[in-house]
Amino acid sequence: MPAKPFLAAITLGLGALTIPATTVSAEEVFDAPVASRQANERGLQTAIFAGGCFWGIEAVFSHTRGVTSAVSGYHGGTAANATYARVSGGFTRHAEAVRVTYDPSVVRYDQLLQILFSVGADPTLLNRQGPDRGAHYRSAIVPVTSEQRAVAQAYLRQMERSGVWDDPIVVRIEDYQRFYEAEEYHQDYLLRNPDSGYIRRWDMPKVRALQAEFPGLYRSRFRTG
């Protein structure tokens, strides 16, 4: 089943900014299934997700109710190579990733997975998303607890059986190694750079899709990391 076309005419509130919607469509909007296994967690939790360029994934989760922090960074590799200049070369073993802190009484881990693969990343694309290519743009789930791992494994199996995607699911579950925060200018990139051509073309449509597909979990106030 192909991605659903998404056209929006919504005014998006980003912090103190109000940005009029454009007619650009978001190609990567899917009916990712509601998880049959729900996460059982209490208290603030941390999750790590990779799904292409971290600007868009951070923006999506920053607009998700229950998320208290979304930080762009690099997962895997070594500290010495955890810089944008080196990671961008594609040879450091890092993935551009986002560390999400969330309140599971508001949004569950399995709901974050559904959001990620509905509006954030196409799980059938290997080492690429949108215009970006390379292993550092891979899609990956990085569980940090045994509960997250069990939920992620069950959800990937469910995605494979769902029939939503025509092509195979290529998302990997990766063992947690270490998360390195990206440089300051990468944080809240959409909020700080709303007129960027890349942001307008590839990332604002994802946030609009979040609002349209998950109205109960969407918030207009941008949560900074």
Rank of each mutant, 00 (worst) to 15 (best):
Q114N: 08
G120V: 06
F6D: 14
H186D: 09
V106D: 02
A8H: 15
V107Y: 05
G89P: 01
E147R: 02
L7Y: 13
Q38G: 10
G197V: 11
I115A: 01
T92P: 00
D203M: 03
L217I: 05
A82S: 14
G73Y: 03
T124D: 12
T18S: 13
P168T: 02
G15K: 00
Q111F: 02
F6L: 13
I48G: 07
L44M: 12
G73W: 08
G89T: 12
R219T: 09
S25G: 05
L7K: 15
G225V: 08
H94Q: 08
A50I: 10
A35Q: 01
A47F: 11
N40R: 15
T83E: 08
R172D: 15
E58C: 07
T124R: 10
I199S: 00
A154S: 15
S105K: 11
E28V: 11
G73V: 04
F6W: 13
T101A: 11
L12T: 15
F179N: 00
T101M: 09
F91R: 12
N81Y: 06
T18C: 02
E184C: 03
Y180W: 14
L116E: 11
V164W: 06
G216R: 10
Q148R: 08
R37Y: 04
L44S: 12
S220W: 00
A26H: 15
I19R: 07
Q114S: 05
H75R: 04
